[in-house]
């Protein structure tokens, strides 16, 4: 995490259906808007169907080699198997954000910053069911400032297709909840 504006490699992981790939897309669009080098790579195949889904995203200032993130600067984990599997590979000095509504264990690392967010709980209380992923992106931004604040909002707007424009408002609310969660 020495120079996050120069390169940040993220791994987002959870169950299929939690919007992991979408969360990764929001980060990717932030890179696009800021004209940075970026790559977004989903896990694909049978594991998408009810199993685990993960997504590698890299934002960088120079061309990206492997888009596969094997030593993430940042891990966003939205289920326990993902946290257990990927917490050990986060680079020392990195960041882990996890959904504590769904994960009842703590990662055992003293060389990374760890943030627990009851994202699923908060979003369902706020009538924002299904948007825990976006809240997590907000919290991630709060802790890493991986892009400019305006960019983040614009990225979310860009990631939502025109035919789903009615979902923009709840998405923005979820993002804001994440950004302000301490």
């Amino acid at each position: 995490m020495s120079d996050i504006r120069s390169e940040i490699r993220l791994l987002l992981a959870g169950f299929g259906g939690q919007g992991i790939l979408f969360a990764g897309k929001v980060v990717a669009y932030a890179g696009l808007i800021e004209d940075r080098e970026l790559s977004w790579l989903p896990s694909y195949g049978p594991e998408m169907r009810g199993g685990t889904a993960n997504c590698s995203v890299t934002l960088a200032s120079s061309p990206i080699g492997s888009p596969l993130v094997t030593e993430p600067d940042v891990l966003v984990a939205m289920n326990r198997p993902s946290l257990e599997k990927y917490a050990p590979i986060v680079r020392p000095g990195g960041v882990i954000v996890y959904d504590s509504s769904l994960i009842d264990t703590m990662p055992v690392r003293d060389d990374v910053q760890i943030y627990d967010v009851p994202a699923t709980g908060i979003t369902s209380e706020q009538d924002l069911g299904g948007l825990a992923n976006v809240l997590m992106v907000g919290k991630l931004w709060r802790e890493t400032q991986f892009c400019a604040e305006d960019t983040l909002t614009a990225a979310l707007e860009k990631a939502i297709p025109a035919r789903k424009a009615h979902l923009l408002e709840p998405n923005l609310r979820a993002l804001k909840l994440g950004k302000s969660y301490v």
Partner: peptide, 10 residues
Amino acid sequence: DGLLGQMMEP
């Protein structure tokens, strides 16, 4: 290959 097919880039 599957990596180039599945990944997104600008």
